[in-house]
């Protein structure tokens, strides 16, 4: 009789792996919200934090937590070459990782700044790729942080004629776009 009861319990949907993953990311989202609100409060910055879970464009990637901060005069939160924003994102990610026990992909944004920057970078990548195809000569982009170079690489990863790679040392590492070798 006891055995039967246990079987019934096991077959309830809450024990599936998928739901566990959903629970974890939802827990991480809540924690990201609390951590950022706490950090901004202690930095004396009056701002609102909205967090949501974004499904990946590519099935191979994991969902990410997007935290958007809004308020008045928040350019100080971006900083030169988005240094402050990156620090805020890094510290928040580390705190999440320490509390949850695994690394959770997190993007911290200020009023859609990263989103707009990402769109610009995607356009830049496609425009430069066209130039490379037309001239046959490789192009080296301005130095960019890793998350921005990643956008360039991702945008062109299925491009039929060009390929990308990063060269140089941080903080002067640059994305390079060049023709695919013909085989």
């Amino acid at each position: 009789m006891e055995g039967q009861a246990a079987e019934v319990k096991l077959s309830t949907p809450t024990s599936s792996y998928l739901d566990d993953a959903d629970d974890n990311i939802e827990k991480a989202r809540q924690m990201a919200y609390e951590t950022l609100t706490e950090l901004l409060g202690k930095m004396n910055i009056d701002a609102k934090v909205v967090t949501r879970i974004v499904d990946p464009e590519d099935d191979k990637d994991r969902p990410i937590i997007l935290a958007d901060i809004s308020g008045k005069d928040l350019s100080i939160l971006i900083g030169r070459k988005s240094e402050t924003l990156n620090s805020l994102q890094y510290v928040t990610s580390l705190i999440l990782c320490n509390q949850i026990g695994e690394w959770v992909p997190l993007m911290v944004d200020v009023q859609g700044y990263r989103y707009r920057r990402e769109r610009q970078l995607r356009q830049l990548a496609r425009r430069i790729a066209d130039q490379v195809v037309q001239t046959g000569r490789k192009q080296v982009l301005e130095p960019m942080p890793a998350n921005e170079r990643r956008i360039i690489h991702l945008e062109l990863r299925y491009h039929p004629f060009v390929t990308t790679e990063s060269t140089g040392e941080e903080p002067n590492r640059r994305a390079t776009i060049f023709l695919k070798p013909r085989d």
């Binding site: 950090l39 202690k42 930095m43 004396n44 910055i45 100080i76 939160l77 900083g79 240094e83 402050t84 990156n86 620090s87 805020l88 890094y90 510290v91």
Partner: peptide, 13 residues
């Protein structure tokens, strides 16, 4: 260094 960056912004306020 990330903590320093956040601290700098907080102090600048």
């Amino acid at each position: 260094n990330s903590i320093r960056t956040l601290l700098r912004v907080a102090a600048a306020r």
